[in-house]
Amino acid sequence: MDDTRVIAAAPHSTQTARIETARLILQPHALSDFAESFALFSDPEVFRYISGRLGTREEAWSRLLRYIGHWAALGFGYWVVREKTSNAFVGEIGFANYERIIEPSFAGIPEMGWALMPALQGKGYANEAATAALAWADRQWPGGTTGCMISPENLASIRLATRHGFAEVVATTYAEHATLVFHRHGASSRISAS
């Protein structure tokens, strides 16, 4: 018996998924974001913790279509993160259902991820974007669990995750790489538990 659960958010247009913070705009991807997304995932500093090799143009195109498809099919996905004043591309953050073959399973748990352009790191943008994305998630899945996978060597991402309530569940491997799996329980479950 297949116990796979499809996670979905309330149906809405990608227009309503746009988020503004003090310094950033988060909006679902469009085809016009391809060049910047490809630049992000072909940067050696970014890919160092993801797979250890640079992303190809073909992989970047598939990733972009997957991001767009998440919003269309599931009502959630990744956002392009841009500076509000300059419209500069900062990076990407969001939630996905990748149907990964990993233990423990992510079945029924939206998986969060993020990546920022190295030149724009260290400005607090990752924290600001994560705060906004997780507030959105708490409204979509009140009391729900979100998860993420992080390389044990990626100390900056581990700090960001734990700062936002993610706790390490297990150290495991995925695609022959060591990885840590983290879970975060949504705001309403943390409030009701206190």
Rank of each mutant, 00 (worst) to 15 (best):
A60R: 11
Y67S: 10
E58W: 01
F38H: 14
F34P: 05
Y67H: 15
A39T: 04
D33A: 10
R53N: 07
L64E: 03
G75T: 12
D43H: 12
R53I: 02
L40F: 09
E36F: 12
I50L: 15
A72P: 00
E59D: 04
R48F: 14
D43C: 11
F38M: 08
L64M: 08
I50C: 11
H70I: 04
A72F: 06
D33L: 08
F38P: 00
R66C: 12
D43R: 09
G69M: 00
R57V: 11
S42L: 11
E36Q: 15
L74Y: 04
W71V: 10
R53F: 03
H70N: 00
G75C: 07
G52L: 14
V46M: 12
S51I: 05
V46S: 12
A72K: 09
L64W: 05
W61G: 06
P44Q: 13
Y49V: 07
W61D: 10
A60T: 10
R53L: 02
W71I: 11
R57E: 15
E45C: 02
E59N: 02
A35E: 14
G69I: 01
F34G: 07
Y49M: 06
L54V: 02
L65Y: 02
G52M: 14
I68V: 11
L40A: 02
R63P: 08
A39I: 03
S42F: 00
R57G: 09
L54F: 06
F47Q: 07
R66E: 12
F47P: 03
H70C: 03
E58C: 01
F41S: 06
G52N: 14
T56S: 07
Y49S: 02
R66T: 15
W61I: 12
P44T: 13
A73C: 15
L54W: 03
D43Y: 04
L65R: 09
G55Y: 03
D43F: 06
L65N: 07
A39E: 05
I50E: 13
E58P: 02
A72W: 06
D43W: 08
Y49N: 07
G52E: 14
L74E: 01
W71C: 10
E45Y: 00
H70P: 08
E36R: 14
R53D: 03
S51F: 00
S37I: 15
S37G: 15
I68G: 01
R66I: 09
L74H: 08
T56P: 03
E45V: 14
L54S: 02
A39Y: 05
S62Y: 05
A35L: 07
F38K: 13
L54M: 00
I50G: 10
I68C: 04
F34R: 04
V46N: 14
A60W: 11
G55N: 04
D43K: 01
T56M: 00
F47M: 08
S51V: 01
R63T: 00
S62Q: 10
R57N: 01
R57W: 09
T56D: 04
R48S: 13
F34A: 07
S62R: 10
R63H: 02
L40P: 09
F47A: 09
A73R: 15
